[in-house]
Every structure is written in structure tokens, then in C-alpha cells.
Design a protein around this nucleic acid. Structure first.
Lengths: 222, 222
DNA sequence: GCGCCTTTTCAACTATTCTTCACAGCTCTT
DNA sequence: AAGAGCTGTGAAGAATAGTTGAAAAGGCGC
């Protein structure tokens, strides 16, 4: 996770940087708006902490410039918590707003809150999918139907996992082939159908969860 | 979008409710933490605005209870911006924190910011269209009428999706043919009519949403 | 190299969908 | 009121896409 800290006061930048690095973030600094804009166009940051009052280019104008190219989350710092300023910030798509003087601990809490929202934990979130008598344990690589474990082939696992991870979504044949087999697969048109057939046979009563979307591909219904 | 406002002061609840309803939210109220917890277990809210200081059960304890069952976004209101309280709030998975006295306008800005983060699909790119009992889910490729899924043919899906994406717009026969069939279609004049007929038949009660514009083409009324 | 399991290919088969066409119906003009 | 010009409809053959079983090809451990 990489942060960009933008403030004209070195003292403040250093202080935030210390706390941020303590929390395990990688940190870069900019001392004015112009610099911030250039850095944002050159590099990728997971979040920008931006002061409002700065020489050269103020924080709001800098965000406006950055927004032309990037949706990077921004947390604004302002010396005074004027309502006008706050609204101004939200309209630009600023994610949060902290008023100086602030507690560094609270600032880092807010940084954490924004990042946890913009980077939802996909892998941590779901290791197992359950619906009625069907259980798909991604981590353990076990699929059970009514408690009975199924004996699937590697491709069947991969295909099922992909379908379940993208359940309730129309998946085109091309996308399935590309994502499950790899972009460099130039096999027969019927390969996918055949594996769907095998998977359906293995799933028994749950075969109907794999819905054929004629002319498009397939969808797994949760 | 449905909000739950929890505060023991009727005056504050009424004030927030007025602003929220002006912004188009549906609003329910609770006057203490216990009530808030019960309501959250019974109903679905898109966001909860919760005061900290309340009789019976304070805001933090209420959120802790709610969190056992629900991940609903919460915005806390507090009479004093003590740092300890703020951190306490973020650790519970509170999404934002507003200090009293606050400006209602800023509060609604923050509510909007949270909701746009938790419901990213609805405001960014549209994946689903709903109007009365008709639901068109583009991503899942599912069309339901009064909860009942329809079994449409590929062309019916494509045509309906195109019409709904360009709803309330007069679409010429030429444009429809060109965009749905492709610029290189040199088929019969009756092909489009026939598919409109099939689609209308499938849509049942909602057939009349597809309006014939004699001499021009068709329009889907949202 | 052998045997077993998995994956892929292939072609026949089935099911669904698309297009065409003839004609009916509607609307507006003459 | 008749006719021209569009649009709606049902039927049927043509076209397309998906399913399936069988068989060949590929991998991997022994």
C-alpha cells in the first residue's frame, strides 16, 4: 500500500510519514499541488493525503486536476473546518476530511477505513461457498453434495470454482475459456461444452445450477 | 435507499429526517439503542445514523449488537469529538463520524459519500434496471416479471437490453437493426417487427412498454 | 514402456432460434 | 371510402447453437 502525502510544511509531512510507515505503508511526499499532480500522473498510489492550503496550487485545485485522470482515494487536511470547504471537498470526490490540528492516530484510523473500503478483501472474505446441500470449499479444494464429497478432476474443480466465484453473472464462452484455460488456448469449440457436461454429471441434483445462456455462455445460479 | 436515524432527541431526528427525505431517502426512526438493534434485525437499512449518547443502550453498544448480525454501514453522531471515542467507533466498523453540532448539509454529504462507496454498482455503471414488477439484470442476463424469471431467446435479450439501455428514447428501425443486428444485416423488413412481437409476447403485462412509433421505430418507456 | 485417468477432438443428434413470406390490420392521405 | 404505406402475426423451413457418447490424444506415476 503506497500513500502520497502532500503538505507544504515539512514538519507535518514527516510526522504523518512516521505514523504511516509504522502502520506498514510505503510513503512518498510532495510539498505542493503541482508536484502532487505530476506524481499522481506518473505513479500509482492507493491513497493521497492532501493539505488544502499550499503555495503554487492549492489542494482542491490539485484534486480537480488529478480527478481528470485518476480515481485515487483522497483524504483532505484543512486548517479550518469551514463547511464550505468540506462540501467543496466531497463534491470533488474526496473520501474524507480531517481538520487541523488532528491526532495522527485518528488520521491513520481514517486512512485505514478508506483503504478497507476501496480494497475489499476478496480472498480473506470467502474461502467457502454454501447453498442448500452444495458446499464448495475453495481453500481445501473439497466439494460436497449433501455431505458427500465429490471426486472431481482438476479441470472440473477449476471450472466449478471459477463459475462459483463469479456466480449470478453471465459468463461468455470466450471469457470462460480465456480465464479457465488461458488466453493461449486454441482448442476445439466443443471443449468447454464437454467439461460443462462432465461437471454437470458430477454435480448430480445441482447440475441445473449451471444455466446455459444460449448464444453467450453459462451462468452459475447461487 | 432506506436510512435509520437513531437519537433520543426528537428535535434532532426530525431535523435529519427532513434533510434526508429532501435528498430522496426513505427514513425510519428509533429513539434508543435497544429499539435500533431490534429494527436492524427485523428490517434492511442501507445506512444507520446513530447517536452515541442515549438512554437504555448507548450508540457504541448498539453498533456492537448490530454487528453480530449485520454489516450495515453506520455513521456515528457524538456530542464531543473525543479521540478515544472516535477510535472506538472505527474499530467497531463504523464508516464515519460526525461531531455535534454539525451542519445537516455536511451530514448528508457524508451519507452520500458512504452510500456511493457501499453501493458502487448503482451509481457508476448500471447493472440492473427496475421499474414496477419488471427487472432487467444486464450482468446476470436475467429478466424477471413480478419475480418470475423469463425465458428469452438471445435476440430477445439483446433487443430488450438495447431498448432498456436507451429507454425513453425514440429509436429508428434503422438504428435498431444496425445496433442490434449489425451494420451488415441485409435481411427482410419484417425481421425487426417479428422480434418485437416475440419480445412483447414474452413481456406479458409489460408489452405495452415497447411503444410503436409509426414511421420511425420503437421506444421503451421506463 | 505400461496402464490408468484426464483432457480434447469429433461427428451425430437434438433443441432452439432466426428469417422469410404472405397476408391481415391499422393509419393517414386523397 | 379507397388506396398507399407501414406495422403486426402465424407458420414453416433454414440456420445456428448446445448436448452427448465414443474415441483418440495426452500426462503421470510406477
Amino acid at each position: 500500500m503506497k500513500l502520497l502525502i502532500v503538505d507544504d510544511e515539512t514538519k507535518i509531512r514527516t510526522m504523518i510519514k512516521k505514523y504511516a510507515e509504522f502502520d506498514g505503508y510505503e510513503v512518498e511526499e510532495a510539498s505542493d499541488g503541482m508536484q502532487a499532480v505530476s506524481l499522481c500522473l506518473l505513479n500509482h498510489y492507493d491513497l493521497v493525503i492532501m493539505d488544502v492550503m499550499m503555495p503554487e496550487l492549492d489542494g482542491f485545485s490539485a484534486v480537480r486536476e488529478i480527478r481528470k485522470k485518476s480515481r485515487v482515494p483522497v483524504l483532505m487536511l484543512s486548517a479550518r473546518g469551514e463547511e464550505y470547504d468540506k462540501i467543496h471537498g466531497f463534491e470533488l470526490g474526496v473520501d474524507d476530511y480531517v481538520v487541523k490540528p488532528f491526532s495522527p492516530k485518528e488520521l491513520m484510523m481514517r486512512v485505514g477505513a478508506i483503504l478497507s473500503r476501496t480494497h475489499p478483501k476478496e480472498d480473506v472474505n470467502e474461502n467457502v461457498f454454501v447453498s442448500d446441500g452444495l458446499k464448495v470449499d475453495f481453500a481445501a479444494r473439497i466439494v460436497t453434495v449433501d455431505g458427500q464429497p465429490l471426486d472431481l478432476s482438476p479441470k472440473e474443480y477449476e471450472l466449478l470454482f471459477y463459475l462459483v466465484r463469479n456466480r449470478n453473472l453471465a459468463l461468455s464462452r470466450e471469457k470462460l475459456i480465456c480465464d479457465v484455460w488461458g488466453y493461449d488456448f486454441y482448442g476445439d469449440d466443443r471443449t468447454l461444452d464437454t467439461h460443462i457436461k462432465l461437471l454437470r454429471r458430477s454435480l448430480g441434483d445441482y447440475a441445473s445450477r449451471i444455466v446455459t445462456l444460449r448464444g453467450v455462455g453459462y451462468r452459475f445460479d447461487a
